[in-house]
Amino acid sequence: MDSELNAERDAILAALTPVVDGIAVTFGPMCDVVLHDYRSPEKSVVAVAGSVTGRTVGGAMSEIGMRVLARGDAAADELNYVTRTRGGTLVKSSTMVLRDSTGAVFGALCVNVDVGAVTQAHGLLGALAGLGAAPAELPTTTFGNDIDSVVDALVDAHQSKQRGSWAELDRAERLELFGGLDTRGVFAVRGAVEQVAARLGISRASAYNYLSRARAAHDTSTGGSA
């Protein structure tokens, strides 16, 4: 059964590969399209056209992909959300999950459009018209071909929301940090617990302990079971 499903998934990816180029050509150089196979998170990019997010075939999933992995088969399409790359590019994106005939999520088709120039023009016209509302603060998304860099960026982002270094965090804040990373799908990546431990300067055993406690706290608060 597994071999049949994998063959089906391979066929879906093969059918979508020319679609990647077609969408990118239609929207032009301000667009890139990325096809992901989440069976291999560390090298999930199987096809790419365009260069907005700097992805290459064989590159890793972004933190958006990690979030999809964390939600499993309950993941849904995320359409027309706006974010910034770490380089400052304003991007409007859509992530459409791929499912096999059993309904299992195994990949995604992602479309990213650089809307920086459009936003600048909109702001200029708004200023000329006297509509000087400040733009909303947008989240920063890490699009990296190296899964380690994506994990590191997520750890840094979560830690920066708190008081400071790991040693300065109290128990609740440490659990919140691990819970937040887990919700974002970081620990769905192979070896991520060890990487997070190294990034925080703690032992692997401590990292596993805090992750276990964070999950138990989450299950208790949502009425689930560990």
Rank of each mutant, 00 (worst) to 15 (best):
residue 115 V to S: 03
residue 51 S to A: 11
residue 45 V to F: 07
residue 184 R to P: 01
residue 144 G to D: 15
residue 18 P to G: 03
residue 11 A to N: 14
residue 162 Q to A: 10
residue 221 S to C: 11
residue 78 E to C: 00
residue 65 G to I: 06
residue 155 V to Y: 00
residue 82 V to R: 09
residue 159 Q to G: 00
residue 69 L to N: 04
residue 98 L to C: 05
residue 102 T to R: 15
residue 65 G to K: 11
residue 143 F to P: 10
residue 127 A to E: 13
residue 106 F to K: 14
residue 58 G to R: 04
residue 112 N to G: 01
residue 123 G to R: 14
residue 37 D to H: 11
residue 37 D to G: 10
residue 187 F to T: 05
residue 196 V to C: 06
residue 18 P to W: 02
residue 157 A to C: 02
residue 66 M to D: 06
residue 10 D to E: 15
residue 100 D to I: 01
residue 118 V to Y: 13
residue 219 D to K: 15
residue 142 T to Y: 05
residue 125 L to I: 11
residue 206 S to I: 07
residue 208 Y to R: 15
residue 80 N to G: 10
residue 211 L to F: 03
residue 145 N to E: 05
residue 146 D to Y: 09
residue 97 V to L: 12
residue 171 R to G: 04
residue 103 G to E: 10
residue 48 V to P: 11
residue 61 M to C: 03
residue 117 A to M: 05
residue 111 V to T: 06
residue 102 T to C: 08
residue 88 G to A: 07
residue 226 A to G: 05
residue 208 Y to N: 15
residue 172 A to C: 03
residue 68 V to H: 08
residue 69 L to P: 01
residue 93 S to E: 12
residue 158 H to F: 08
residue 83 T to H: 08
residue 27 F to D: 01
residue 183 T to C: 01
residue 107 G to K: 05
residue 205 A to Y: 12
residue 87 G to D: 09
residue 86 R to P: 14
residue 131 L to T: 12
residue 151 V to I: 15
residue 95 T to W: 10
residue 107 G to F: 04
residue 82 V to C: 09
residue 42 E to F: 00
residue 154 L to K: 09
residue 3 S to K: 05
residue 127 A to D: 10
residue 53 T to F: 03
residue 36 H to T: 00
residue 18 P to R: 03
residue 20 V to G: 04
residue 25 V to G: 08
residue 60 A to T: 01
residue 147 I to N: 02
residue 134 A to C: 01
residue 21 D to Q: 10
residue 149 S to N: 15
residue 19 V to N: 10
residue 80 N to A: 13
residue 76 A to H: 06
residue 209 N to M: 09
